[in-house]
């Protein structure tokens, strides 16, 4: 009897475990399916994907879309341009977001709420609304058609969100830690650099990723402010493929896949820090 009940219990637990795994696998499957489908259609001959029903597993593999892509378009250069643009944007955002969220979390001053409001306000403005004045300004100052100046615009648009995200991370650092640093003789900025930044390193990683992805994807400013083909970032290059009538779909999907690989790998490499960074829970008092 006893053994039977024990077995039933174990079976039930086993069943629950299986159900749990089935749920997780099913969910991940649904989430990842579009990614899978993109890969499948970029590596199988186009005719396979253009029949009904399409084969769920590629029956034949061809890397022709990739090779023709690399032969016909300066994808390497696009990639380098995007990397550069995203890196510069990230650096600008990091510097300013640290200062901004520091002021919002640890400093006492009047107008904090108004500042927070202002930050959110700027985020409510669609880029399409400001692109004309920004272009006019850049043109008058002779700043258009350059990646560094483009990164300034990108940084301005993602900075407010990054300040909020970093503030969230700073919030979980006990105020006592900051005060202890002050008592130890640090200046506020010294305390920020020596004590707070090391504690919020994961938060900084998270903010970097947010900024990096934004600049990587940003299209409207890039296509407006960049005129010369040789400093085009990937987002613009990819769009130029899509609008061409004669670009075969498999090549477009190959390009889209190629465009996605880098941020995904980047993310997978540093994801540990991201989750930790978005919480910074370890130091909460």
């Amino acid at each position: 009897m006893n053994a039977g009940a024990h077995l039933r219990h174990r079976l039930r637990r086993f069943g629950a475990g299986m159900a749990f795994y089935a749920l997780i696998i099913g969910f991940c499957g649904v989430v990842l399916f579009p990614v899978y489908w993109m890969i499948v259609n970029a590596i199988q001959p186009l005719s396979h994907g253009m029949q009904y029903p399409p084969p769920m597993i590629p029956e034949e593999i061809s890397f022709l879309p990739f090779t023709t892509l690399f032969e016909n378009y300066p994808v390497g250069r696009w990639l380098v341009n995007s990397l550069l643009l995203a890196t510069m944007t990230t650096l600008i955002v990091l510097a300013l977001a640290v200062l901004g969220s520091f002021a919002m979390t640890f400093l006492k001053w009047r107008g904090k709420a108004a500042f927070g409001l202002l930050l959110l306000m700027t985020q409510m403005l669609p880029e399409a609304l400001v692109v004309i004045p920004v272009y006019a300004m850049y043109r008058n100052l002779g700043l258009s058609d350059s990646l560094p100046t483009l990164s300034l615009v990108d940084a301005a648009f993602i900075l407010p969100i990054c300040i909020w995200v970093l503030k969230n991370s700073f919030d979980s650092i006990a105020e006592e830690i900051y005060e202890a640093a002050l008592i130890d003789g640090c200046s506020p900025l010294g305390a920020l650099v020596r004590t707070l930044l090391p504690l919020s390193a994961p938060g900084l990683v998270a903010v970097s990723v947010v900024a990096f992805f934004y600049a990587w994807n940003e299209y409207l400013f890039a296509v407006t402010l960049i005129n010369s083909p040789d400093i085009r970032p990937v987002a613009v290059g990819l769009a130029s493929l899509k609008v061409m009538l004669d670009t075969p779909i498999d090549r477009v999907l190959a390009a889209a896949l190629f465009f996605s690989i880098f941020p995904v790998i980047f993310y997978l490499l540093i994801q540990r820090y991201i989750v930790a960074g978005l919480s910074a829970g370890a130091v909460k008092g």
Binding site: F27, C28, V31, L32, P34, V35, M38, F213, W216, N217, Y219, A235, L238, A239, K242, A256, L257, F259, S260, P263, V264, F266, Y267, Q271
Partner: peptide, 11 residues
């Protein structure tokens, strides 16, 4: 699960 976040919109 986090992959779509890293996935560019246009893709």
């Amino acid at each position: 699960i986090a992959v779509p976040w890293a996935f560019p919109e246009i893709s």
